[in-house]
Computed example of a mutant assay.
Amino acid sequence: MKTPLLRLSLIAAALALGGTLPAQAADANTVTIMVGGINKIIYLPAKLTEALGYFKDEGLNVELQSQPAGVDAENQLIAGAVQGVVGFYDHTIDLQAKGKEVEAIAVFGKVPGEVEMVSTKAAPTFKSMADAKGKTLGVTGLGSSTDFLTRYLALRQGVESKEYSLLPVGAGNSFIAAIKQDRIQAGMTTEPTVSQLLKTGDAQVLVDMRTEEGTKAALGGLYPAPSLYVSNAWAESHKEQATKLAHAFAKTMQYLHTHSAEEIADKMPRDYYGNDKAMYVAAIKSSLPMFTTDGRMPEGGPETVLKVLSTFKPQVKAKNIDLSKTYTNAYLPAAK
């Protein structure tokens, strides 16, 4: 029997030689989902759905796994090691440009929920992304959505990628350490890391994409991001499981808009907030407006994402991308 590591290596090698995205069959109603940082509030619906029992209500046995960066979760899906990923929708477009078809079947966020934070030390001379020249900027991983967005924000301010450095620093404590140690002068992260840095005074907000207003100002439109995506082939051959997953997440999105931040925090594991539950509750409260109410793709969102990616990724061009294959509302409950 091949070890999981060897199996992944063999699949990765096959893909490098032009193989196709495998549609690994799960056991009946058993699904493994990789989350690009399970304790990030932007991906809170994953753990919350489990905590609320909605997966079980649908007759599903769902195993949630976590990788600190979305690009690593994406690689697990491509390798066939998991059936789904909770990550950023933009990966579906980027992957289609590489010949891999994946689609979002439930969208959690109308906006990225990401914040470009600048260290307090660098802040006096780093007042906008136009000041990124010569700086080191933190991202969760190279090729991640934070990588995509950072490069776009800089380019929009006239700063080319060769004029600054990107450093993969992960999220949470590793991101905070990079800021404190001045290994990065600014970087992109999410809640609750944003609130932690603001509380300690180690960093300040430079670009805020937690709200629709802030996202439209930064990116020119809504940028649907946190979502559940699967391979198109898997969804087609496992329609029942795909539908059950989408329905479970749709119920969670309704829960988020009908319960308080305190009630939501009470459902989450204690290690998500440690000894500062009040800060965690505040972070959830500030993030709630970003979430969709029903898991559906917001109108116009895919076009904004395509515009952003095509700005700096030569292989991503509108004429070569079929957006209708990057998401679907078909597995969700009928719109009310």
Score class of each variant (00 low, 15 high):
Val107Ser: 02
Val139Tyr: 03
Arg270Cys: 01
Gly170Asp: 13
Gln157Val: 01
Lys199Gly: 10
Thr136Met: 03
Thr200Gly: 05
Met268Ser: 02
Arg296Glu: 01
Gln67Leu: 10
Glu160Ser: 11
Asn232Arg: 15
His247Arg: 13
Lys239Val: 03
Val308Ala: 12
Ser144Trp: 12
Ala330Trp: 06
Asp271Phe: 15
Arg210Ser: 14
Lys285Thr: 10
Gln76Ser: 09
Pro22Tyr: 10
Thr49Asp: 05
Leu288Val: 04
Met253Arg: 03
Asp27His: 11
Ala132Leu: 06
Thr189Gln: 03
Ala177Ser: 11
Ala69Met: 12
Arg7Tyr: 07
Val281Tyr: 05
Met290Trp: 01
Lys239Phe: 12
Met1Tyr: 03
Gly87Ala: 15
Lys2Glu: 13
Gly59His: 10
Asn173Glu: 15
Glu103Asp: 08
Leu222Gly: 11
Tyr280Arg: 05
Ala177Phe: 12
Ile321Cys: 08
Asp271Val: 10
Gly37Thr: 14
Ala14Ile: 11
Ile176Asn: 11
Leu6Asp: 14
Ala81Val: 04
Glu262Gln: 08
Ile78Met: 11
Glu263His: 01
Ala248Gln: 07
Thr304Glu: 07
Glu160Lys: 10
Ala334Trp: 04
Asp266His: 14
Ile41Tyr: 09
Val308Met: 13
Thr125His: 08
Thr311Asn: 11
Glu163Arg: 10
Gly170Phe: 06
His257Met: 07
Gln24Lys: 15
Thr20Cys: 11
Glu58Met: 13
Ser66Arg: 09
Thr304Arg: 04
Ala97Ile: 02
Ser237Val: 11
Phe126Val: 13
Val308Ile: 14
Phe249His: 12
Leu228Tyr: 07
Pro168Ser: 02
Gly141Tyr: 08
Thr190Leu: 02
Phe148Gln: 09
Asp182Leu: 09
Gln83Ala: 12
Leu155Thr: 00
Ala261His: 01
Gly274Tyr: 05
Tyr43Asp: 04
Ala28Phe: 12
Thr120Ile: 14
Lys216Leu: 04
Pro302Asn: 05
Leu309Thr: 00
Pro314Gln: 13
Leu8Ser: 15
Gly295Thr: 11
Leu332Met: 02
Thr146Cys: 06
Ile41Lys: 00
Phe148Glu: 11
Val207Gly: 02
Ile284Cys: 05
Lys313Val: 00
Ala250Arg: 08
Val139Trp: 02
Ala73Ile: 02
Pro112Phe: 04
Ala104Thr: 11
Ala13Asn: 14
Val35Ile: 07
Ser128Asn: 13
Leu288Gln: 09
His91Leu: 04
Glu263Val: 04
Leu60Glu: 04
